[in-house]
Design a protein around this nucleic acid. Structure first.
Length: 914
DNA sequence: TCGACTTACACGTTTGAATTGA
DNA sequence: ATCAATTCAAACGTGTAAGTCG
């Protein structure tokens, strides 16, 4: 057995790292040990300033930079998003459903990657379900420590990740701010956006080079302690195998429960009567009436009865008909439908999808009444031909990298594919964040194309979910960023002017791209931009007045940066945002179609926006693959956020270390994989660039002839050679100092999700959330020890004692990339000696591990890189068990008093990890 | 009084140990 | 003695309803 003890760094795996780093609201208060994503972004050196990639870097043509992520159960997510996804949060932790299941492609099979899941607030608003829709009722509560869920398989080789579907179903959500289990802490009645980060890492300690972040707009949700929307409940019951008991034919269904209750009451009455009248000694009379018997007996009886089998399928019709039925095909129908295998449609609910996990049924195929949720995108939109060359999976949503610069004249991929596909954007290629021009709507896409252009400004088109483009901080943006961003600047407040002036440069090309290619996405997203309209998905735009004076002007990230921002500010065609968020009718997910504002994403068809936050989707009774292909999911259109891109977040977070210089090198490769929207808009990516092979061949089947080819390629094409991205730059998350030698068990600081955020364009509209702390998926995997002492001083980061990395292909050449920590020092840190539990069964013995990359091993500096087995390394053999392990040391609130991040952030108690 | 949250409950699924058979 | 298949029970996941809290 491999032991964490041997490889403390590996311990990070599933654990929840998030709490390791807390951003202090007071900018000056401290320098976080692990800079937030935003911070990192802010610090990030402009790509041009970064050192050139090491010559030894992977051979050209490596898929590394073509990293793509596809949301496997996108159709299920879309169904939920159409209604307004709600996620239960409980004190003890609750899993997410639908589960976040993705498929990766474009990874270098030989390199190791860490997959992280974090969930970030979409806005700074608190919601309430009123009048059958989600409405903003006030400001968000104080930001909770961000936690990151590290996939239990992390780190694992690209081959490992690509050969299976990756599920984060073990991640749990809790509203317990004192949670010691390592679960992701969220506020109830807030809207969140899950994000998946793919970070190249030789091991847990050595993060760097490439980072790819993916967000799927359709996965946004509002946290609740009890379901508010009955439609969501219905969807969950029908799609979650664990809730089978509540289905119509289930023993715990309403009828059954009511009958049970009735019997119970009756029995009690009778019992009482019997008790009174009957001989106490004669219990026989009572037996039949015993409380327990009736229920069980009843259930049996009921099961035998021909009660309407509202099984999974039958109930489909019952699903949110209203929302969908009347809706015009505004949204990308293809998106939703395409992903659903035709075979799945008819499958009995009992048939679970083949998941790697084999746990939860994937909604994709089985979802009830898919037709109802079918995206509204007109099939005609797709111009198919151009993408034909690229065999992208249509079924799943893929977020492909979008190159900012390139525009695609290419025809839009099929809506379905597009919506689902999110491509990462190479840092170098950061799409111009022109707030104004912005949203790139793919010019190529014809109006009505499957991907509604998200033109934030004018076009009412809905953005395809896929259309999101990542926004990378531009040099300007970085420079402009103040070292310390005000903690709670309401993002809404960002003045439009600021957006433009923010220095976030939006790649003009992107704009073009948006306009053209996936452009449709741009138009589709308008709703996002329009805060007013958006109920759910988009935070009501705060009044133009920035409530938070502290917020830096620039923070006004480009609109794109704000996922659901009050786009109006940056938006050339600003939608009027009510000053009072409360007043804004925020329909939950999507702005009501009614809204006339061009920006609004709403589906025009939907007359009643308020009722269903999410855009209504046309129901498609019978999913016709051909039709599906053409249609896009409505949801995609709803998330304009990505357009502006995460720069906002970046800008919002000042770089504590070097605001201007960006002492932290930001991996250029970091690509934010946002919605396909812009990517789609972007010119189609050369097929060669795409690791097409990775895509399931089956997926394309959905595409209709004439339908646009997969959007993903289009977006990615330009950005591709990500390899060029700054290899040397340490991963944003990797703010930790790394022990020079493998022997050292210092745990790398868990990548700060917040840091990742920087890459994300959208999600943080609100500067008020300075940063998102990372959460590790499996706490148990992470050893307290695993956290290497982090040097608070910026210098350490800047001048990490780096082994001769240069030789190593994967090692960043820059000296600063990895701050070194003396092994001895690690032990000195009290924090590192936490009593945090770790899984004893996890054993990683260096000697047992094969060299990470045989080909590279010779060149790699031994001290720097621990022997890393090329085979997939499973940090936590039993993820579940590990999850239960409390990571107190990780989760403790940081001592804000500490000026320097390292010590304060970890409460390491007692025992030495090593 | 109301909304949000917590808790207990019943049901179903998942998982792993124990058992059985070849 | 070994291995695979089967059985069983505990743990876990889920939504609901009642109760609690502010």
């Amino acid at each position: 057995m491999l032991g964490v003890e041997m490889y403390p760094s590996l311990a990070l795996g599933p654990q929840r790292l998030s709490d390791c780093y807390y951003r202090d609201r007071e900018p000056s208060a401290h320098v976080p040990l692990y800079p937030t994503t935003c911070d990192m972004a802010a610090r990030g050196l402009p790509p041009r300033l970064l050192q050139p990639p090491p010559a030894t870097a992977e051979a050209p043509g490596t898929p590394q930079d073509n990293v793509k992520m596809e949301l496997e159960n996108a159709s299920l997510w879309k169904q939920f998003s159409t209604v307004g996804t709600e996620m239960i949060v409980t004190k003890k932790g609750r899993r997410m459903f639908p589960q976040l299941r993705v498929k990766l492609s474009g990874l270098n099979p030989t390199l190791r990657y860490i997959l992280l899941l974090d969930i970030v607030p979409v806005d700074s608003s608190r919601y309430r379900f009123q009048d059958n829709s989600w409405q903003v009722v006030g400001g968000a509560e104080a930001r909770l420590p961000d936690r990151v869920f590290i996939h239990p398989d992390s780190p694992a080789t690209g081959e490992h990740w690509q050969n299976r579907s990756i599920s984060f179903h073990r991640a749990k959500l809790t509203n317990n701010t004192l949670d010691a289990q390592g679960y992701i802490i969220l506020h109830s009645l807030h809207r969140y956006q899950p994000r998946v980060h793919v970070i190249e890492a030789r091991d847990v300690l050595m993060w760097g080079r490439a980072q790819h972040s993916f967000t799927f707009p359709e996965t946004q949700f509002i946290t609740v302690t009890a379901y508010q929307n009955s439609k969501i409940t219905e969807l969950k019951i029908n799609s979650n195998p664990f809730a089978k008991g509540f289905r119509e034919n289930g023993m715990n269904c309403k009828k059954q429960r009511e009958a049970r209750l009735k019997r119970k009451i009756t029995s009690n009455q009778e019992e009482s009567l019997d008790i009174e009248s009957c001989d106490p000694c004669d219990s026989t009379e009572l037996l039949p009436q015993s409380v327990e018997l009736p229920s069980s007996a009843l259930t049996i009886i009921n099961s035998a009865l021909p009660i309407t089998d509202s099984g999974f399928h039958t109930e489909v019709p019952s699903l949110p008909d209203q929302t969908v039925s009347n809706q015009p095909l505004v949204l990308g129908q293809a998106f939703l439908t395409s992903e659903i295998p035709s075979s799945m449609e008819s499958q009995p609910q009992t048939t679970p999808e083949n998941n790697v996990n084999n746990t939860l049924m994937d909604g994709s195929g089985q979802m009830i009444g898919l037709s109802e949720y079918t995206s509204t995108f007109p099939t005609a939109q797709l111009s198919s031909s151009s993408h034909a060359s690229v065999p992208l999976p249509q079924s799943s949503s893929i977020y492909s990298m979008v190159s900012s610069t390139q525009n695609s004249d290419l025809e839009l991929p099929q809506p379905s594919t597009i919506s689902s596909t999110y491509s990462s954007i190479p840092s170098s290629d950061y799409p111009g964040l022109n707030s104004s021009t912005t949203m790139p709507s793919s010019t190529t896409s014809p109006p009505g194309s499957s991907y509604p252009p998200i033109s934030h400004s004018t076009s009412p088109h809905l953005l395809p979910s896929s259309s999101y483009h990542s926004i990378l901080p531009t040099d300007q943006s970085q420079e402009n960023l103040s070292p310390h961003t005000p903690t709670n600047p309401p993002f809404q407040s960002i003045p439009p002017s600021s957006c433009q002036g923010s220095g976030l440069t939006i790649d003009p090309g992107q704009n073009q791209v948006d306009d053209s290619g996936l452009s449709s996405s741009n138009e589709t997203t308008p709703a996002i931009q329009n805060p007013n309209q958006t109920a759910f998905p988009f935070p009501p735009v705060q009044s133009s007045n920035d409530p938070d004076p502290t917020s830096p002007p620039c923070q006004s990230l480009p609109q794109s940066a704000l996922p659901f921002q009050p786009v109006s500010q940056c938006n050339p065609n600003p939608i009027h945002t009510p000053s009072d968020p409360n007043t804004t009718p925020t329909a939950f997910p999507f702005p009501p179609a009614e809204q006339s504002t061009p920006n609004s994403i709403m589906t025009p068809s939907n007359p009643n926006p308020s009722v269903f936050p999410f855009p209504p989707v046309q129901q498609i009774p019978n999913l016709n693959m051909s039709t599906l292909g053409s249609t896009q999911t409505p949801t995609t259109g709803y998330f304009p956020v990505y357009q502006s891109s995460g720069l906002s977040t970046i800008s919002a977070i000042p770089n504590p270390v070097h605001p201007t210089t960006g002492s932290f090198s930001f991996p250029s490769t970091n690509a934010i994989h946002q919605g396909p929207m812009q990517s789609a808009s972007n010119t189609l990516h050369p097929t060669t660039a795409f690791p097409v092979h990775s895509f399931p061949a089956s997926l394309p089947k959905h595409t209709t002839p004439g339908s646009l080819p997969n959007p993903a390629p289009a977006t990615s094409h330009t950005s591709y050679p990500f390899a060029t991205s700054i290899p040397s730059a340490p991963h944003p998350f990797q703010s930790l100092t790394l022990p020079p030698s493998s022997s050292i068990h210092g745990v790398p600081a868990i990548p700060n999700p917040t840091q990742i955020q920087s890459t994300f364009p959208q999600s943080y509209p609100n500067p008020s959330f300075p940063h998102i702390p990372p959460q590790v998926g499996n706490p148990s995997q992470i050893n307290s020890q695993s956290f290497p002492p982090i040097q608070s001083s910026s210098t350490s980061q800047l001048n990490p004692p780096v082994p001769p990395i240069s030789n190593h292909p994967q090692c960043p050449t820059s000296s600063n990339a990895y701050p070194s920590v003396a092994p001895t020092e690690i032990g000195t840190f009290s924090q590192l000696n936490s009593a945090a539990p770790y899984l004893p069964d996890m054993v990683l013995h260096p000697s047992l591990l094969p060299p990470f990359d045989p080909s590279l091993s010779s060149s790699a500096p031994p001290s720097l890189y621990n022997p890393f087995p090329s085979y997939s390394l499973r940090l936590c053999q039993d993820p579940r068990s590990s999850l239960h392990l409390p990571l107190r040391h990780i989760y403790r609130q940081p001592q804000h008093s500490h000026a320097h991040g390292q010590g304060p952030y970890f409460d390491l108690g007692g025992r030495a990890v090593f």
